[in-house]
């Protein structure tokens, strides 16, 4: 096996996994805690990308652009929570899906008016452009930065949900909202905080990916489907599940793209393997989801039966 390619694809897979986690964690928190299906979660990812790209161009500094973009994405999240999500808490998932699908159309149209149909690219500062030697390969510094910042966010989220008072109240409100309110918990505020946090995490993912790809109108819709795959594999509502599933999906996707044809050549004639592999590798994460759901219908970390 080609070690250099393997390490490169491993890093690519981890980087994809980390970004998927940033998007999926918000999605799974909002679904698990608020019982709200937000199809428009990808909008925050797209907004994070476009806003950070514009602000980077304006300010001449990409890190500054990202830092300024996140509060704006938080504002968009707050407005969405207040105007679209809050009236639909406790309503049917179909109503939520319809409303948030409408929101996607609206957001895409607005983004097209503001930024046009062309994508926006952004240049990394010089100190992020280098490569570091890692044994047999040289890895781009920036991809490692993404991986480590994503892992740091994941750790912070875990501590927040499981070890702080705020996280405890959030869990209590998710488990039994009426009880939490009777104890004096302002659940409306908790819900808003969780929703906005999810939006900011997705925005951060969008901002982080922009220097590698670009900010584009379709990016939100592209990521949201995979993000749903991630939370279904992980078990809806589970942060741990979202993390494990995001990494799994990232690795399967990256390694599948590189090695599926080699794998197929072991079983099929070369010609068939070379035609089938690209098609199958594009489907690999869905095949993974189907396989996991057969074995564990509730996902890797299934949601426990929840009280009202």
């Amino acid at each position: 096996m080609n070690t250099a390619l393997f390490v490169t694809q491993l890093v690519n897979g981890l980087q994809l996994g980390v970004l998927l986690f940033l998007v999926a964690s918000g999605l799974t928190l909002v679904f698990g805690i608020l019982d709200f299906v937000n199809l428009a979660h990808g909008v925050f990812y797209m907004l994070g990308a476009f806003i950070s790209a514009s602000l980077a161009a304006l300010s001449g500094s990409w890190p500054l652009g990202v830092m300024l973009a996140l509060p704006l994405v938080a504002l968009a999240g707050a407005a969405t929570e207040r105007l679209v999500a809050r009236p639909l808490y406790g309503k049917s998932h179909l109503a939520q899906v319809l409303a948030t699908f409408g929101l996607i159309l609206l957001a895409d149209a607005l983004a097209m008016l503001i930024w046009g149909v062309e994508g926006r690219t952004v240049a990394l500062p010089a100190w992020l452009q280098g490569r570091v030697a890692a044994g047999v390969v040289e890895l781009p510094v920036y991809r490692l930065v993404i991986i480590f910042s994503g892992l740091a966010v994941a750790a912070a989220l875990y501590v927040w949900v499981h070890h702080t008072r705020f996280g405890m109240l959030v869990r209590a409100a998710a488990a039994n909202r009426a009880m939490a309110e009777a104890l004096g918990v302002d659940t409306a505020r908790l819900h808003a905080v969780v929703f906005i946090l999810g939006a900011v995490l997705a925005g951060l993912a969008g901002a982080l990916i922009t220097p590698i790809t670009e900010a584009s109108l379709s990016m939100g819709s592209d990521i949201i489907i995979v993000a749903f795959v991630v939370i279904i594999i992980g078990g809806t509502g589970s942060l741990k599940g979202a993390f494990a599933a995001a990494m799994l999906v990232g690795l399967v996707d990256a390694l599948g793209r590189a090695w599926l044809d080699d794998l197929f050549k072991l079983a099929f004639p070369a010609e068939i393997a070379e035609t089938a592999a690209p098609a199958i590798s594009a489907m690999s994460i869905y095949i993974l989801m189907a396989a996991i759901l057969v074995l564990r219908p509730g996902g890797l970390f299934p949601p426990r039966a929840r009280g009202r």
């Binding site: 209590a172 998710a174 488990a175 039994n176 009777a182 104890l183 929840r306 009280g307």
Partner: peptide, 25 residues
């Protein structure tokens, strides 16, 4: 208000449940 403690909070310790009530205020 005394509430019937439902299954999910059942995963927490007795003390943490009481702490939750203190914190909620």
């Amino acid at each position: 208000r005394a509430f019937q403690v439902t299954s999910p909070m059942a995963g927490m310790t007795v003390l943490d449940n009481a702490l939750l009530a203190v914190m909620a205020q």
